[in-house]
């Protein structure tokens, strides 16, 4: 990474304390530079959403955070939460999966956006509403002045998500954390919204952390990608390197099992087993029981991230011995 990162996460550990202690995220480190889009990719239970919420300071009670989260050099872990409050809305903003969870049903979309403006800037009602309409217009809501007077339930799912993105970005934050922002939407709507977010990000120069379970979404929009499994780092680096030449078998398997556009066989290369869950992790590398390349030593020690190539890191004991085309590990091995 060149220069100082906008967001630095170092040795992050997130622990659920009830009913008994379970680590949801362990030893996680990554950084996001200003203006960069990082995709955090993982399956259910990989720890990607709690990581996003730890960055934002929005973890539910009962989860304990240790390690470091630094935003523009300032430490956000520990303390009273005042550090986070000073950043929310101004410098760091959140786009959740479910737009209705952050929109009030009893206020118009325009009023809610105007409130977001007024909570940060000392402007009058009228000026705030004008900025709100401009923000709706920027995210591609047609006839924004009229739509600003509508209530969230009068918007379609895609339009609601656009409104939430408008609200998150109305005060020009430096970082937007989006947790599966388009997962609940139709694929064509999903593509349009992600394109809009990507274009908007470039224009405004903001950094984005995009949490997704969909590698294809990461491939299309992110600069860098962080792949997580069972709460740990699996692979990270420039998106084209990681997806074109993955070094961790888990990443390779995820890519290999996607339907290819020109494949001939009706069978897909498939991974065996099911994702590991926190609290019931196998010993050693959590992916070892499903990994076609695993050896005895994989089940004894957890692998640490190793830099394979300029900025491309992978956590795998066998990184140096794997075939050049790691996808070959997953040629149809059955179901």
């Amino acid at each position: 990474m060149s220069g100082r990162a906008l967001l630095e996460v170092e040795g992050l550990r997130i622990t659920a304390t009830r009913p008994h202690e379970v680590d949801l995220v362990r030893d996680l480190s990554f950084a996001v530079a200003a203006g960069e889009m990082l995709a955090v990719v993982g399956e259910s239970g990989a720890g990607k959403s709690v990581t996003a919420r730890a960055v934002l300071g929005l973890l539910p009670a009962g989860l304990r955070v240790s390690g470091h989260v630094r935003f523009d050099g300032r430490e956000l872990v520990g303390g009273t939460g005042a550090a986070h409050r000073a950043l929310w809305g101004r410098r760091m903003a959140f786009v959740p999966q479910d737009a209705l969870s952050v929109l009030s049903p009893v206020h118009t979309v325009g009023d809610q956006l105007a409130l977001a403006v007024r909570s940060v800037r000392g402007v009058g009602r009228k000026a705030a509403l004008e900025q709100a309409v401009a923000a709706l217009d920027r995210v591609g809501i047609p006839d924004a002045a009229r739509r600003a007077r509508a209530y969230p339930h009068e918007f379609s799912g895609g339009m609601r998500q656009r409104a939430v993105i408008a609200m998150a970005t109305v005060n020009d934050p430096d970082l937007v954390v989006a947790d599966e922002p388009t997962t609940a939407l139709d694929p064509t709507v999903q593509a349009r919204i992600l394109d809009m977010l990507a274009a908007f990000r470039e224009q405004a120069g903001m950094a984005v952390v995009l949490v997704t379970h969909d590698l294809a979404v990461a491939a299309a929009h992110a600069d860098r990608v962080l792949v997580m499994y069972a709460g740990r780092h699996v692979e990270s680096g420039p998106v084209h390197r990681v997806l074109r030449a993955p070094r961790a078998p888990y990443t390779a398997g995820l890519i290999a099992s996607l339907p290819a556009r020109h494949a001939v066989s009706r069978y897909l290369p498939a991974m065996s087993g099911a994702p590991a869950t926190a609290g019931a992790l196998p010993p050693g590398c959590a992916f070892a029981p499903r990994c076609p390349a695993a050896t005895d030593s994989c089940t004894r020690h957890e692998p640490e991230p190793v830099e394979w190539h300029d900025g491309h890191w992978a956590s795998c004991h066998r990184i140096a011995e794997l075939p050049r085309r790691t996808a070959d590990l997953f040629e149809r091995t059955g179901t």
């Binding site: 259910s44 996607l258 099911a274 149809r332 059955g334 179901t335």
Partner: peptide
């Protein structure tokens, strides 16, 4: 379903 188990279920239908 999780991405890593999808292909296995798809293959099952074909089998």
């Amino acid at each position: 379903l999780d991405p890593s188990v999808r292909a296995g279920v798809i293959n099952l239908f074909t089998e």
